[in-house]
Design a protein around this nucleic acid. Sequence first.
DNA 1: TCTGGGGTCCTAGGACCC
DNA 2: TCTGGGGTCCTAGGACCC
Length: 425
Amino acid sequence: MRRTRDGKGLKTFFHVDMDAFFVSVEELYDPGLKGKAVVVGGQRDQRGVVSAASYEARKFGVHSAMPLRTAAKLCPHAIFVEGQPARYRESSDKVRAVLGRFSPLVSMASIDEAFLDMTGTQRLLGPPLEAAHRLHEAMKAQTRLNCSIGISASRMVAKVSSDQAKPNGILWVLPGQEARFLAPLDVRRIPGVGKVTEKNLHALGIRKVRDLERLGAGELERRFGKWGLALAGKAHGQDAGGWFDTAVGESPTPKSISHEHTYMEDTADRQTLEGSLARLSEMVARRLREAELHARTLQLKLRYSDFSTITRAHSMETPTQLDTEIFHGILKLFSAAWKAGERVRLLGVQASSFEEGECPQLNLLVEDGRERWRQALSAADKLRDKYGDRAVTMANAMKGRFREKVQDTLPHALPGSGRKKEECR
DNA sequence: TCTGGGGTCCTAGGACCC
DNA sequence: TCTGGGGTCCTAGGACCC
């Protein structure tokens, strides 16, 4: 660890969190939204939840993750807008660029928040509070967006303090004051404590962070396992476990890639369902190719009308990034799992267990066939970039009833799809 | 209230191997 | 015939985050 001048190895982290990010970006495109109750996520009568709500809408009890229809009841005069991911990504890139001028060690924790390791920037940028003010101003000037900044020697505490600083504020928790800062807060404020854990803690009479002290690390571990132990550390401001373990500045390769779809109305129509699976498989495969990843494990997600949800996974001998192989595997899982006739609310396709490159000992014929498929699909990706996702689609996505014909040209016609274990290992 | 979509991490049981 | 213990992989489910 790099040491500061006091020699204690003390670090300084910023947690920068954009205020009402999606709403603020929408306001850039439509200034008429400013000061109004705005809900981003979809139309008022749609299935779905609130992605972001303006502060005006929050006054009526609207908050993110709330069903859109509930938000509409609480705040009938709110303006509902669809999310526009491309806009948010663009703004997020600008945010990232600003942050990069304040530290070489930046980790985007999500589209609208980041950790900065500010250790050792004092000579250049001044003391933490001064640097934070400069960052705050630069952010406003260059993105026209407000942010809140938490400062601490602990990333976890920096995150909590940026939350306390909202909206549009800066909060510095001095080294050594972490536990005192956290003590009076609700346990729910600690990252990782959600609805369920909060309820469990309440049942034990623990409402504030300071109440965790009473139980002690041993008892917390006994009741909540490994996580309980981490929780005891968090109460004192330690960066224990989870996302706080990786160094700031690293961008790890993803662990999984997935797409899912919830129907406007539940359906038990096999052709519709298989068409969706084909489309989801393509989307996942495309992202795999873009990321130059090959997945060995496929997972199907199936949610029925009553919201009961199952997942079914299968691991393959050879990792893949091909639409056809993914769709084939997913279709098998679906056929085995779906209770035919049961109405389905959601379908999802996930790829995971990524491996570097492909199995090296595939025979040349197989390799050639796969390579040709890969090239063909890359070409399709380019068409989609140009003309949109609808331009190129496996026939299945449109017409499930012609499945048999389509399959003639797909998986089993693909050289090597029936390959044996010995060819590879 | 009637519950999105994209992720990460953890737990737990069973298979399988030594 | 009854039965060890550790390690790893796989699968299913669930909590949590934004």
